[in-house]
Nucleic acid binder design. Structure first.
Lengths: 147, 147
DNA sequence: CTGACATCTGAGCGACTGCTCATACGTTCA
DNA sequence: TGAACGTATGAGCAGTCGCTCAGATGTCAG
Protein backbone atom coordinates (compact mmCIF):
# COMPACT_ATOMS: atom_id res chain seq x y z
CA UNK A 1 0.00 0.00 0.00
CA UNK A 2 1.00 3.59 -0.61
CA UNK A 3 3.55 2.25 -3.02
CA UNK A 4 2.44 4.62 -5.73
CA UNK A 5 3.33 7.79 -3.92
CA UNK A 6 6.80 6.42 -3.39
CA UNK A 7 7.40 5.63 -7.03
CA UNK A 8 5.87 8.69 -8.62
CA UNK A 9 6.47 12.37 -8.98
CA UNK A 10 9.60 13.99 -7.63
CA UNK A 11 9.42 16.40 -10.55
CA UNK A 12 10.12 19.42 -8.43
CA UNK A 13 12.49 17.73 -6.06
CA UNK A 14 15.44 19.28 -7.85
CA UNK A 15 14.31 22.73 -6.81
CA UNK A 16 15.29 21.92 -3.28
CA UNK A 17 18.94 21.61 -4.20
CA UNK A 18 19.06 25.41 -4.44
CA UNK A 19 18.04 25.81 -0.82
CA UNK A 20 20.11 27.08 2.10
CA UNK A 21 20.80 30.31 0.26
CA UNK A 22 19.60 32.48 3.11
CA UNK A 23 16.23 34.02 3.97
CA UNK A 24 15.51 34.99 0.38
CA UNK A 25 12.19 36.29 -0.87
CA UNK A 26 11.97 34.05 -3.92
CA UNK A 27 9.98 30.85 -3.78
CA UNK A 28 12.73 28.64 -5.12
CA UNK A 29 13.94 28.69 -1.56
CA UNK A 30 11.85 29.00 1.57
CA UNK A 31 9.85 32.06 2.43
CA UNK A 32 9.88 31.43 6.11
CA UNK A 33 12.73 31.60 8.56
CA UNK A 34 15.33 28.94 7.59
CA UNK A 35 15.91 27.99 11.19
CA UNK A 36 12.23 27.31 11.58
CA UNK A 37 12.33 25.21 8.43
CA UNK A 38 15.10 23.11 9.88
CA UNK A 39 13.05 22.65 13.01
CA UNK A 40 10.04 21.68 10.96
CA UNK A 41 11.92 19.11 8.95
CA UNK A 42 12.95 17.38 12.11
CA UNK A 43 9.53 17.63 13.69
CA UNK A 44 7.69 15.90 10.87
CA UNK A 45 6.37 12.41 11.27
CA UNK A 46 8.72 9.76 9.92
CA UNK A 47 7.90 8.27 6.49
CA UNK A 48 7.08 4.89 7.91
CA UNK A 49 4.71 6.43 10.43
CA UNK A 50 3.13 8.49 7.69
CA UNK A 51 2.41 5.39 5.66
CA UNK A 52 1.17 3.46 8.66
CA UNK A 53 -1.10 6.32 9.69
CA UNK A 54 -2.51 6.68 6.20
CA UNK A 55 -3.08 2.96 6.09
CA UNK A 56 -5.36 2.82 9.13
CA UNK A 57 -7.19 5.96 8.19
CA UNK A 58 -7.73 4.60 4.74
CA UNK A 59 -9.19 1.46 6.27
CA UNK A 60 -11.68 3.67 8.09
CA UNK A 61 -12.22 5.86 5.05
CA UNK A 62 -14.87 3.76 3.37
CA UNK A 63 -18.59 3.76 4.23
CA UNK A 64 -18.84 -0.01 4.04
CA UNK A 65 -15.97 -0.59 6.41
CA UNK A 66 -17.30 2.05 8.76
CA UNK A 67 -20.53 0.08 8.87
CA UNK A 68 -18.71 -3.18 9.46
CA UNK A 69 -16.63 -1.81 12.30
CA UNK A 70 -19.56 0.03 13.80
CA UNK A 71 -21.62 -3.15 13.83
CA UNK A 72 -18.79 -5.14 15.37
CA UNK A 73 -18.25 -2.48 17.99
CA UNK A 74 -21.47 -3.74 19.58
CA UNK A 75 -20.23 -7.28 19.85
CA UNK A 76 -19.24 -10.42 18.03
CA UNK A 77 -21.04 -11.30 14.79
CA UNK A 78 -20.87 -14.08 12.24
CA UNK A 79 -20.28 -13.13 8.61
CA UNK A 80 -23.81 -13.89 7.57
CA UNK A 81 -25.48 -11.84 10.26
CA UNK A 82 -23.08 -9.01 9.71
CA UNK A 83 -23.77 -9.03 5.99
CA UNK A 84 -27.51 -8.84 6.56
CA UNK A 85 -27.18 -6.21 9.24
CA UNK A 86 -25.34 -3.82 6.99
CA UNK A 87 -27.13 -4.93 3.83
CA UNK A 88 -24.09 -6.12 1.95
CA UNK A 89 -23.51 -9.28 -0.06
CA UNK A 90 -21.81 -12.16 1.76
CA UNK A 91 -18.92 -12.06 -0.67
CA UNK A 92 -18.30 -8.35 -0.32
CA UNK A 93 -18.53 -8.66 3.44
CA UNK A 94 -15.99 -11.45 3.46
CA UNK A 95 -13.63 -9.47 1.25
CA UNK A 96 -13.79 -6.49 3.55
CA UNK A 97 -13.31 -8.63 6.62
CA UNK A 98 -10.22 -10.14 5.10
CA UNK A 99 -8.81 -6.68 4.56
CA UNK A 100 -9.65 -5.60 8.10
CA UNK A 101 -8.20 -8.80 9.48
CA UNK A 102 -4.95 -8.23 7.59
CA UNK A 103 -4.77 -4.83 9.24
CA UNK A 104 -5.43 -6.39 12.62
CA UNK A 105 -8.57 -4.37 13.09
CA UNK A 106 -10.76 -7.43 13.48
CA UNK A 107 -10.19 -10.98 14.64
CA UNK A 108 -11.94 -14.16 13.56
CA UNK A 109 -13.02 -17.20 15.52
CA UNK A 110 -14.36 -20.38 13.97
CA UNK A 111 -17.38 -22.13 15.48
CA UNK A 112 -18.54 -25.02 13.36
CA UNK A 113 -19.40 -23.80 9.90
CA UNK A 114 -19.62 -20.25 11.03
CA UNK A 115 -16.89 -17.71 11.62
CA UNK A 116 -17.36 -14.96 14.17
CA UNK A 117 -15.63 -11.64 13.98
CA UNK A 118 -14.72 -9.20 16.73
CA UNK A 119 -12.93 -5.90 16.91
CA UNK A 120 -9.26 -6.51 17.59
CA UNK A 121 -8.30 -2.98 18.45
CA UNK A 122 -9.57 -0.85 21.27
CA UNK A 123 -8.29 2.31 19.62
CA UNK A 124 -10.76 1.95 16.79
CA UNK A 125 -13.76 2.82 18.90
CA UNK A 126 -11.91 5.81 20.27
CA UNK A 127 -11.05 6.97 16.78
CA UNK A 128 -14.67 6.54 15.79
CA UNK A 129 -15.91 8.65 18.65
CA UNK A 130 -13.35 11.32 17.96
CA UNK A 131 -14.33 11.30 14.30
CA UNK A 132 -17.99 11.56 15.17
CA UNK A 133 -17.27 14.56 17.33
CA UNK A 134 -15.64 16.19 14.34
CA UNK A 135 -18.54 15.30 12.10
CA UNK A 136 -21.12 16.67 14.47
CA UNK A 137 -19.24 19.89 14.91
CA UNK A 138 -18.59 20.27 11.19
CA UNK A 139 -22.26 19.70 10.44
CA UNK A 140 -23.04 23.14 11.82
CA UNK A 141 -20.91 25.04 9.35
CA UNK A 142 -21.74 24.09 5.76
CA UNK A 143 -19.01 22.91 3.46
CA UNK A 144 -17.72 24.79 0.47
CA UNK A 145 -17.96 23.40 -3.02
CA UNK A 146 -14.94 22.28 -4.98
CA UNK A 147 -15.63 24.01 -8.29
CA UNK B 1 -18.12 11.29 -2.41
CA UNK B 2 -19.34 7.88 -1.36
CA UNK B 3 -21.83 8.09 -4.20
CA UNK B 4 -20.78 4.78 -5.59
CA UNK B 5 -21.73 2.73 -2.59
CA UNK B 6 -25.18 4.26 -2.75
CA UNK B 7 -25.77 3.40 -6.39
CA UNK B 8 -24.24 -0.06 -6.53
CA UNK B 9 -24.84 -3.56 -5.32
CA UNK B 10 -27.94 -4.42 -3.37
CA UNK B 11 -27.91 -7.81 -5.05
CA UNK B 12 -28.54 -9.66 -1.84
CA UNK B 13 -30.89 -7.09 -0.38
CA UNK B 14 -33.83 -9.23 -1.38
CA UNK B 15 -32.70 -11.91 1.05
CA UNK B 16 -33.70 -9.68 3.89
CA UNK B 17 -37.32 -9.72 2.86
CA UNK B 18 -37.47 -13.27 4.17
CA UNK B 19 -36.48 -12.16 7.64
CA UNK B 20 -38.62 -11.95 10.75
CA UNK B 21 -39.38 -15.64 10.45
CA UNK B 22 -38.35 -16.38 14.01
CA UNK B 23 -35.08 -17.53 15.60
CA UNK B 24 -34.30 -19.98 12.81
CA UNK B 25 -30.99 -21.72 12.36
CA UNK B 26 -30.62 -21.00 8.66
CA UNK B 27 -28.54 -18.10 7.45
CA UNK B 28 -31.27 -16.58 5.35
CA UNK B 29 -32.41 -15.11 8.62
CA UNK B 30 -30.25 -14.14 11.57
CA UNK B 31 -28.27 -16.62 13.61
CA UNK B 32 -28.16 -14.52 16.68
CA UNK B 33 -30.96 -13.57 19.03
CA UNK B 34 -33.55 -11.59 17.04
CA UNK B 35 -34.11 -9.18 19.90
CA UNK B 36 -30.44 -8.41 19.94
CA UNK B 37 -30.56 -7.85 16.19
CA UNK B 38 -33.33 -5.33 16.62
CA UNK B 39 -31.24 -3.56 19.23
CA UNK B 40 -28.26 -3.59 16.93
CA UNK B 41 -30.17 -2.14 14.04
CA UNK B 42 -31.15 0.79 16.17
CA UNK B 43 -27.71 1.23 17.67
CA UNK B 44 -25.91 1.54 14.37
CA UNK B 45 -24.59 4.87 13.20
CA UNK B 46 -26.98 6.69 10.89
CA UNK B 47 -26.22 6.55 7.16
CA UNK B 48 -25.39 10.23 6.96
CA UNK B 49 -22.97 9.90 9.86
CA UNK B 50 -21.43 6.85 8.25
CA UNK B 51 -20.74 8.78 5.08
CA UNK B 52 -19.47 11.80 6.95
CA UNK B 53 -17.19 9.65 9.05
CA UNK B 54 -15.83 7.83 6.04
CA UNK B 55 -15.27 11.15 4.35
CA UNK B 56 -12.94 12.56 7.00
CA UNK B 57 -11.11 9.31 7.48
CA UNK B 58 -10.62 9.06 3.76
CA UNK B 59 -9.16 12.54 3.78
CA UNK B 60 -6.62 11.33 6.34
CA UNK B 61 -6.13 8.05 4.51
CA UNK B 62 -3.51 9.23 2.07
CA UNK B 63 0.22 9.59 2.79
CA UNK B 64 0.45 12.91 0.99
CA UNK B 65 -2.40 14.45 2.94
CA UNK B 66 -1.02 13.06 6.16
CA UNK B 67 2.21 14.90 5.37
CA UNK B 68 0.37 18.09 4.53
CA UNK B 69 -1.66 18.08 7.71
CA UNK B 70 1.30 17.05 9.81
CA UNK B 71 3.36 19.94 8.45
CA UNK B 72 0.54 22.41 9.03
CA UNK B 73 0.06 21.12 12.55
CA UNK B 74 3.28 22.94 13.39
CA UNK B 75 2.05 26.26 12.12
CA UNK B 76 0.99 28.32 9.16
CA UNK B 77 2.74 27.74 5.82
CA UNK B 78 2.51 29.16 2.33
CA UNK B 79 1.87 26.75 -0.53
CA UNK B 80 5.38 26.99 -1.85
CA UNK B 81 7.10 26.29 1.44
CA UNK B 82 4.71 23.49 2.18
CA UNK B 83 5.36 21.90 -1.19
CA UNK B 84 9.10 21.99 -0.64
CA UNK B 85 8.83 20.77 2.90
CA UNK B 86 6.98 17.63 1.92
CA UNK B 87 8.72 17.28 -1.43
CA UNK B 88 5.63 17.53 -3.59
CA UNK B 89 4.99 19.54 -6.75
CA UNK B 90 3.30 22.91 -6.28
CA UNK B 91 0.39 21.80 -8.41
CA UNK B 92 -0.21 18.60 -6.53
CA UNK B 93 0.07 20.47 -3.25
CA UNK B 94 -2.50 22.99 -4.38
CA UNK B 95 -4.89 20.26 -5.49
CA UNK B 96 -4.65 18.55 -2.13
CA UNK B 97 -5.09 21.82 -0.28
CA UNK B 98 -8.23 22.52 -2.24
CA UNK B 99 -9.62 19.16 -1.22
CA UNK B 100 -8.71 19.70 2.42
CA UNK B 101 -10.18 23.20 2.32
CA UNK B 102 -13.45 21.87 0.92
CA UNK B 103 -13.58 19.50 3.88
CA UNK B 104 -12.86 22.38 6.25
CA UNK B 105 -9.71 20.72 7.47
CA UNK B 106 -7.54 23.67 6.48
CA UNK B 107 -8.14 27.38 6.01
CA UNK B 108 -6.41 29.78 3.64
CA UNK B 109 -5.31 33.37 4.10
CA UNK B 110 -4.05 35.57 1.31
CA UNK B 111 -1.03 37.83 1.86
CA UNK B 112 0.03 39.53 -1.35
CA UNK B 113 0.80 36.94 -3.95
CA UNK B 114 1.14 34.24 -1.41
CA UNK B 115 -1.52 32.16 0.28
CA UNK B 116 -0.99 30.80 3.75
CA UNK B 117 -2.69 27.69 5.05
CA UNK B 118 -3.53 26.66 8.59
CA UNK B 119 -5.29 23.76 10.20
CA UNK B 120 -8.96 24.59 10.62
CA UNK B 121 -9.90 21.77 12.93
CA UNK B 122 -8.59 21.06 16.38
CA UNK B 123 -9.87 17.49 16.25
CA UNK B 124 -7.45 16.60 13.48
CA UNK B 125 -4.41 16.70 15.70
CA UNK B 126 -6.24 14.59 18.26
CA UNK B 127 -7.13 12.06 15.60
CA UNK B 128 -3.52 12.01 14.47
CA UNK B 129 -2.22 11.34 17.94
CA UNK B 130 -4.79 8.63 18.49
CA UNK B 131 -3.87 7.08 15.16
CA UNK B 132 -0.20 7.20 16.00
CA UNK B 133 -0.86 5.43 19.26
CA UNK B 134 -2.55 2.68 17.27
CA UNK B 135 0.34 2.49 14.82
CA UNK B 136 2.96 2.28 17.52
CA UNK B 137 1.07 -0.44 19.31
CA UNK B 138 0.36 -2.37 16.11
CA UNK B 139 4.02 -2.19 15.14
CA UNK B 140 4.83 -4.72 17.83
CA UNK B 141 2.67 -7.49 16.41
CA UNK B 142 3.44 -8.16 12.75
CA UNK B 143 0.66 -8.09 10.22
CA UNK B 144 -0.69 -11.07 8.33
CA UNK B 145 -0.49 -11.32 4.60
CA UNK B 146 -3.57 -11.14 2.42
CA UNK B 147 -2.96 -14.14 0.17
C1' DC C 1 0.26 48.03 -19.48
C1' DT C 2 3.79 44.44 -19.06
C1' DG C 3 6.49 41.02 -17.05
C1' DA C 4 7.43 38.22 -13.05
C1' DC C 5 5.85 35.53 -9.48
C1' DA C 6 2.68 32.60 -6.53
C1' DT C 7 -1.18 30.01 -6.80
C1' DC C 8 -5.24 27.77 -8.93
C1' DT C 9 -7.55 24.87 -12.19
C1' DG C 10 -9.08 21.50 -15.91
C1' DA C 11 -7.88 17.63 -18.67
C1' DG C 12 -6.06 13.28 -18.92
C1' DC C 13 -3.46 9.11 -17.65
C1' DG C 14 -2.17 5.03 -14.98
C1' DA C 15 -2.96 2.78 -10.66
C1' DC C 16 -6.09 1.37 -7.25
C1' DT C 17 -10.69 0.15 -5.12
C1' DG C 18 -14.92 -2.23 -4.09
C1' DC C 19 -18.22 -4.80 -5.94
C1' DT C 20 -20.22 -9.05 -8.44
C1' DC C 21 -19.95 -13.58 -10.28
C1' DA C 22 -18.43 -18.11 -10.17
C1' DT C 23 -16.33 -21.32 -7.64
C1' DA C 24 -13.39 -23.53 -4.00
C1' DC C 25 -12.94 -24.70 0.80
C1' DG C 26 -14.28 -26.42 5.42
C1' DT C 27 -17.75 -28.25 8.44
C1' DT C 28 -21.94 -30.78 9.74
C1' DC C 29 -25.40 -34.19 9.23
C1' DA C 30 -27.85 -38.05 7.22
C1' DT D 1 -19.69 -40.55 1.33
C1' DG D 2 -22.39 -36.91 -0.44
C1' DA D 3 -25.47 -33.06 -0.01
C1' DA D 4 -26.18 -28.72 2.29
C1' DC D 5 -24.56 -24.81 4.42
C1' DG D 6 -21.42 -20.92 5.75
C1' DT D 7 -17.42 -18.78 4.39
C1' DA D 8 -13.25 -17.58 1.48
C1' DT D 9 -11.13 -16.46 -2.79
C1' DG D 10 -9.78 -15.16 -7.71
C1' DA D 11 -10.97 -12.77 -11.88
C1' DG D 12 -12.82 -8.95 -13.93
C1' DC D 13 -15.21 -4.56 -14.46
C1' DA D 14 -16.62 0.23 -13.65
C1' DG D 15 -15.64 4.00 -10.92
C1' DT D 16 -12.31 6.77 -8.24
C1' DC D 17 -7.77 8.74 -6.97
C1' DG D 18 -3.55 11.36 -7.19
C1' DC D 19 -0.39 13.01 -10.08
C1' DT D 20 1.48 15.73 -14.20
C1' DC D 21 1.08 19.03 -17.78
C1' DA D 22 -0.44 23.18 -19.71
C1' DG D 23 -2.51 27.21 -19.09
C1' DA D 24 -5.58 30.64 -16.36
C1' DT D 25 -5.99 33.81 -12.46
C1' DG D 26 -4.52 37.16 -9.13
C1' DT D 27 -0.97 40.30 -7.23
C1' DC D 28 2.93 43.35 -7.31
C1' DA D 29 6.71 46.24 -9.36
C1' DG D 30 8.41 49.11 -13.04
Amino acid sequence: MSSRSDVRARTKASARTAAAAGPAEACDVFHIDPSRVAGLRGALITPSSVDALAEIFRALGDPTRVRVLDALSHGELCVCDLAQLIDLSQSATSHQLRLLRALRLVRSRRAGRMVFYTLDDRHIVTLFRQGLRHVEEAAVRPRRRLA
